[in-house]
Computed example of a mutant assay.
Amino acid sequence: METAYIKTPLGIAAITGDENGISEISVLDEGTVSVEIPIVLQEAVLQLNDYFEKKRTHFDFKLNPKGTEFQQKVWKTLLEIPYGKTRSYLEQSKILGDVKAIRAVASANGKNPLWIVVPCHRVIGTNGSLTGYAGGLWRKKWLLEHENPTTQQSLF
């Protein structure tokens, strides 16, 4: 496994992966930026930089997240949420076929190892409120505003 650290508007992104794909992307409040980027991580770094520069709305590098079968299923449905759109935890549960699984869905979202790429930040409360986000609600708000196709004063 290789790891690279890049500067983003939201902190230092730690990107970990190998020839089988990227297994983890997380955000840190501080850290040292990598001088050299391992070859197996270069495409992910390029695409993340493009995302922050508003040159990219989806990612197509190889993913290899580790998680339970249920978590993998939840993360796959997150990939279906279009850029600039949101979905509620209840809607996610319905898509997965069990409206009562809302807490399990929220828990799986919280364990998403691929920050931004698997867009758990696009899941909000049924009433439209921002709810839990492992990276902090201020980052979730920033990401949703970054992806918002229309310029507004503030979404939340």
Rank of each mutant, 00 (worst) to 15 (best):
G97H: 14
I37C: 06
K62L: 14
N64Q: 14
M1H: 10
V123S: 09
W138D: 10
N127W: 12
D60L: 04
L144S: 14
H58L: 00
G31K: 02
Y51M: 06
T57P: 00
I15N: 07
N109D: 07
V123Y: 13
K73D: 06
V33L: 01
V33D: 04
I25N: 01
Q71R: 07
R139F: 00
T16Q: 13
D50L: 12
K141S: 08
V105D: 03
A44G: 11
I116G: 06
A134G: 05
I95S: 12
E147F: 08
K73A: 09
G21Q: 02
E36C: 02
H146R: 11
H121L: 08
V45R: 06
Y89W: 12
E30M: 00
V117N: 03
V74Y: 05
G97A: 08
N64W: 08
G125H: 15
T131E: 02
P113Q: 00
E53K: 15
A13E: 05
N20R: 12
T3S: 07
K66S: 12
E19D: 08
I102E: 06
V27I: 15
Q47Y: 08
G17P: 07
K66C: 13
S88A: 13
L79D: 08
D50H: 11
E19T: 07
V33G: 02
V74S: 04
G17E: 07
G135D: 14
L130S: 02
G128Q: 11
V99F: 12
H58W: 08
N112P: 05
V99D: 01
V117Y: 02
K73W: 07
I102L: 03
K85D: 13
M1A: 09
K100G: 09
E145F: 04
G31Y: 06
H121M: 05
V123T: 12
C120A: 15
I25Y: 02
N127G: 10
P38R: 02
T151D: 10
T3D: 01
G97I: 08
P149S: 08
K140W: 09
